[in-house]
Design a protein around this nucleic acid. Structure first.
Length: 222
DNA sequence: AACATGCTCAACCGCCACAAG
DNA sequence: GCTTGTGGCGGTTGAGCATGT
């Protein structure tokens, strides 16, 4: 695990950056810190301005409408920057934080999401067993989405309740599932356990029903 | 009151795309 | 076509605050 010291911006540094940009504008992030007398990288300056100092940045107090937009766009695969573009005043970083701290649970609180999780997993099975699937990024997405499941399973519980396994993280008792050679039986084992945590009101479908039918939305692409 | 745990968010990193030379 | 510089994106981390025990 990398260990690096975080170095918060001081009010003086903020002032320097704001003064410089208000006077000369943004012309080159790499050169700017030198001219502004800041001992920061251009990237750091850019991030500080974009996420914090820019007067157009809105802070806190997300409306329900904003949350819904984030959830919808995220579910359709939009990137953070695309979502930020749809929410004036919100930054990608802020939206990302919002997602990971609040919305990921809300998002999972519907059946469609659960089905999507299963579909993603099914695609993964198909890939591993039958195809040399070229879209490596899809696998990463599958892993991420499956990780999402653990958050989903928390729906309706408080932080003090028993937390189901956290798939795909260092604390994940199932982490070996993703790192070992793929074995279909492992999927069933995990799905079974996964299903036991789902709120019964959702009427979790039998995983066998889902895996019994060949399913791969990417067949047409192959 | 003291400690443990969880949550939030600013800040960093690595990687990628693109443009210019 | 290759190299280099720059900006942008997404993932991750750590500090500090809030809350619970």
């Amino acid at each position: 695990m990398p260990s690096f010291k975080k170095c918060p911006w001081t009010p003086e540094e903020d002032m320097q950056l704001v003064n410089y940009i208000s006077r000369y504008g943004i012309w080159n992030w790499t050169q700017m810190p030198k001219h502004a007398g800041l001992s920061r990288t251009g990237k750091s300056c850019r991030l500080r301005w974009m996420n914090y100092l820019d007067p157009q940045v809105k802070r806190g107090n997300y409306t329900q409408e904003e949350d819904e937009i984030i959830i919808k766009m995220r579910q359709t695969g939009s990137g953070w920057s695309a979502i930020a573009a749809s929410l004036p005043g919100r930054t990608d970083n802020e939206i990302k934080n919002r997602w990971h701290t609040r919305l990921i649970i809300k998002s999972a609180n519907n059946m469609e999401q659960i089905v999507s999780e299963i579909d993603t997993l099914t695609m993964y099975c198909d890939y591993q067993n039958n195809f040399d699937f070229p879209e490596a990024s899809m696998l990463e997405a599958a892993n991420e989405d499956y990780s999402l499941s653990s958050h989903m399973l928390n729906t309706g519980t408080s932080s003090n309740d028993v937390i189901p396994p956290t798939f795909g993280t260092s604390a994940d008792p199932h982490v070996s599932f993703w790192r070992e050679p793929f074995v279909l039986e492992n999927v069933y084992d995990d799905i079974d356990e996964y299903a036991t945590y789902v709120d019964p009101q959702f009427g979790m479908p039998n995983p066998e029903d889902w895996f019994g039918e060949p399913f791969n939305p990417y067949y047409d692409m192959l």
